[in-house]
Write a protein that binds this DNA or RNA. Structure first.
Length: 424
RNA sequence: GGAGAGGUGGCAGAGUGGUUGAAUGCGCCGGACUCGAAAUCCGGUAUACGGGUUUUCCCGUAUCGAGGGUUCGAAUCCCUCCCUCUCCGCCA
């Protein structure tokens, strides 16, 4: 959520900034609601003050043993009038909030202007795409050879867009996740966290999935309604919801390896093949909770942590700054990491690192106390994939494939596979 | 899932309808005393929103697990829900 003050006082500037990311702010509607809000609130508070003063006088009169009936007559009808106005005020506030919750974050000034993916800006590349002396196979072919990767069986269990992994490939998948967690906890200073996978609606609202993107989520039957997390960003970030942290607790660096569940109806061309886009996948997530003045340095740092995963795996990738039009709902600035996929002869997203500034913090009521001023202030929240495990598996398979269909195990993963150098 | 107990400020813990945003203690901050510290004493110590001066500040409103109700007035009475603890059942 944006700062309500900003929305009240600087509506035109907000509208201009949001237009850069392709969002049309319902300016006139907000202005009208705001005018009503102000009128109702002023009147409600005036009547409340009157009621309080008179009630107090009644109390005093009674304590002195005086007859309060005259005073009682004066307040007759006040309660009902107040109640009516209070209801109207509540209704106006609800209306305002419903709109405010669907307004995306303001893009940071450094975000390149653009309409869609085409306008994203490549910042750097790492590694050279390997040239193969034989026709490359994609991960689906490579996985089919030994029954390692099986979409058909998965479909029988769960429908389209699920995968069964078996044998050495399942093990390699596990090794990747372990490697990432170890790297981030041992070398990058993250605290490993194991979180619930089902969360309440208000938690989804905190990070921005609700109310706008309910269609992307899986909900579970039962009371209260719970949702499967689409990313551990949801649980890791909400760890600080409704808290006022002390300054010494910051920064927080948190990581978790979890399954992620996404409903995301609709097809994406080539991605229906294989395990690029699934309803369920695994990811190692990075989250940082920061003081506002540190958050952009933290974004660079965290992106570096995700990059380090790909570097150590020896996977060629490039770093891209998303343009205003491609930015996620809650993000003020996002870097994507795209890994080289030989079968597609192009780079594909494997990580996304965002600074949400105070957007999520405001929804979650996550603050810290600034020792200098003694005041509480919203924290800044950042999240990044470090990295998507399923896609990392695909990248390893395709980039490390051999002519016979076997796959060389990247050196850093061998300790996790009992020293095995290739799976065949 | 069943039975019982309980949810009050950073913590502990009073408070069963009235000048209560809330006693008291602890903690924390500032000051006094001291060469310094401890002890002692004095003062301060929630959050959000709105309004005024928009820098220290002042005023109003709301908040005692959440929501609703009764009342001129609710931490206190009533209803619904949530959570925690104890015991039983079930379960990896």
């Amino acid at each position: 959520m944006l700062d309500p003050q900003l929305l009240r006082r600087d509506l035109d500037r907000v509208a201009e900034a949001l237009a850069r990311r392709g969002f049309a702010l319902p300016r006139e509607r907000l202005r009208a609601i705001e005018a009503r809000r102000k009128a109702f609130q002023t009147e409600v508070e005036r009547l409340q003050a009157e009621r309080n003063a008179r009630s107090k006088a009644i109390g005093i009169a009674k304590a002195k043993g005086e007859d309060p009936s005259g005073l009682l007559a004066e307040v007759a009808g006040l309660g009902e009038r107040l109640q009516g106005l209070e209801r109207e005020l509540a209704e106006v506030l609800r209306e305002w909030e419903a709109i405010a919750l669907e307004i995306p974050n303001l893009p940071h000034e450094s975000v390149p202007l653009g309409r869609d993916e085409q306008d994203n800006r490549e910042l750097r590349r790492f590694g050279e795409p390997h040239t193969f002396s034989f026709p490359v196979r994609d991960h689906v072919e490579l996985g089919a050879r030994k029954g390692w990767l099986d979409a058909e069986t998965a479909a029988r269990l769960s429908g389209a867009r699920f995968t069964v992994l078996r044998g050495e490939l399942a093990r390699l998948h596990r090794a990747l996740a372990q490697f990432m967690l170890d790297l981030h906890t041992r070398e990058h200073g993250y605290l490993e966290v194991n979180t619930p996978l089902l969360v309440l609606p208000e938690v989804m609202q905190g990070t921005g999935q609700l109310p706008k993107f309910e269609a992307d989520l899986f909900a579970v039957a039962g009371e209260p309604r719970r949702y499967l997390i689409p990313t551990a960003e949801v649980t890791l970030t909400n760890l600080v919801r409704e808290r006022i942290l002390s300054a010494e607790e910051l920064p927080l660096r948190l990581t978790a390896h979890t399954p992620c569940f996404r409903a995301e109806a609709g097809s994406y061309g080539k991605d229906v093949r294989g395990m690029i886009r699934q309803h369920q996948f695994e990811k190692v997530e990075l989250v940082q909770i920061r003081r506002p003045e540190d958050s952009y340095a933290a974004l660079e740092e965290m992106t570096g942590h995700a990059e380090e995963v790909l570097r150590r795996l020896g996977l060629p990738y490039r770093l891209v700054a998303l343009c205003t039009g491609d930015l996620g709902f809650a993000s003020a600035k996002t870097y994507d990491l795209e890994v080289w996929l030989p079968s597609q002869n192009r780079y594909r997203e494997i990580s996304s690192c965002s600074n949400c500034e105070a957007f999520q913090a405001r929804r979650m009521q996550a603050r810290f106390r600034d020792p200098a001023s003694g005041k509480s202030e919203y924290v800044h929240t950042l999240n990044g994939s470090g990295v998507a495990v399923g896609r990392a598996l695909i990248a390893v398979m395709e980039n490390y494939q051999n002519e016979d269909g076997s796959i060389t195990v990247p050196e850093v993963l061998r300790p996790y596979l009992g020293g095995v150098e290739r799976i065949a």
